[in-house]
């Protein structure tokens, strides 16, 4: 008996309890993420306009995609997302620096103010912009009344879509970036300055590389969210630009062509994954954090 007892405790070691504790989440991921994803991938190989999963696989849907102009919507989505990320990086870095290093007590107020905007549904906020920018809306009407300038509708163009996306996804860039900037020790920045570097050199050689984890996480979050964005283009862009997400939506709804929608989704998920993994591979997080040697 005395030999068995330690054996028993080893069976219920930390690994066992870890597995037990993570099993609810594991099950959720299995049924909520993995299973539907596999369904979508499989459905993409079913004959067009059918609703059966148990049929002979076919590549017809992919043929349709490559023979038609879906690539345009894909390019629009990727392009809009890339521009949004770029603009947000430029806007948010100084603000993140101020939040992390300068504002002190004021920082939490700004943080709450920005986080509060997330409490209101994205669509409601976008419709607010519509009221602002439509013909004789808040902006146009005010200008007409005060300056006598007649402004046509400011909606339904690409810049306003980008403006909407920048606005909606700002918190997702700002907060990771603020954490990233916080990771740069003040004395390290001072040391670089003391060793002769000017402000730009300090930024390029110290701030940027050391805050890169935040830059990367913020960029990835915004990219992944905005590449699948649908409301900005629809509400502010008024179908001027068709994103891939709205193509997929119409295949599943108006067109009732689930297999084609699934094939588009599969293709798009694969594309996004390639972009994301490429970015992650280029910037090794571990290396950036100094946990791995540069050999």
């Amino acid at each position: 008996m005395s030999v068995r007892t330690p054996k028993k405790t080893r069976e219920f070691g930390p690994g066992f309890f870890g597995a037990l504790a993570s099993s609810p989440f594991g099950l959720l991921m299995l049924f909520g993420f993995v299973a539907p994803l596999l369904c979508v991938v499989w459905f993409g190989f079913m004959p067009p306009k059918t609703f059966e999963l148990l049929q002979v696989p076919t590549l017809q849907n992919y043929e349709v995609i490559f023979n038609q102009t879906y690539f345009k919507s894909i390019l629009w989505s990727l392009g809009l997302a890339a521009v949004t990320v770029a603009i947000l990086l430029v806007i948010c870095y100084p603000l993140a620096f101020a939040l992390a290093k300068i504002f002190k007590g004021g920082a939490s107020f700004v943080t709450y103010a920005i986080a509060t905007s997330l409490f209101v549904s994205e669509n409601i906020r976008l419709f607010g912009w519509v009221i602002g920018f439509m013909k004789n809306g808040v902006v146009g009407g005010t200008l007409a009344k005060l300056l006598g300038v007649q402004v046509d509708s400011l909606l339904y163009n690409v810049p306003v879509i980008i403006l909407g996306m920048v606005y909606v996804y700002l918190p997702f860039m700002l907060f990771p970036l603020t954490l990233g900037v916080k990771m740069v020790p003040d004395q390290v920045r001072e040391a670089a300055f003391d060793l002769g570097a000017n402000r730009w050199q300090v930024f390029k050689k110290i701030d940027l590389p050391l805050s890169m984890p935040g830059v990367l996480i913020g960029s990835l979050l915004v990219f992944v969210l905005s590449v699948g964005a649908i409301s900005e283009a629809k509400i502010l862009g008024g179908q001027k630009v068709v994103t891939i997400a709205s193509d997929i939506e119409s295949e599943f709804t108006y067109a009732q062509n689930w297999p084609l929608g699934s094939a588009l989704s599969t293709l798009f998920i694969a594309l996004t994954a390639i972009v994301v993994f490429f970015a992650l591979g280029r910037f090794d997080l571990e290396k950036l954090l100094g946990k791995k040697s540069n050999e």
Partner: peptide
């Protein structure tokens, strides 16, 4: 002039 910091302030991302 330059200074050796109490924390040393080495650049952690460099060799």
């Amino acid at each position: 002039t330059c200074m050796v910091f109490q924390s040393l302030a080495l650049f952690p991302h460099m060799t």
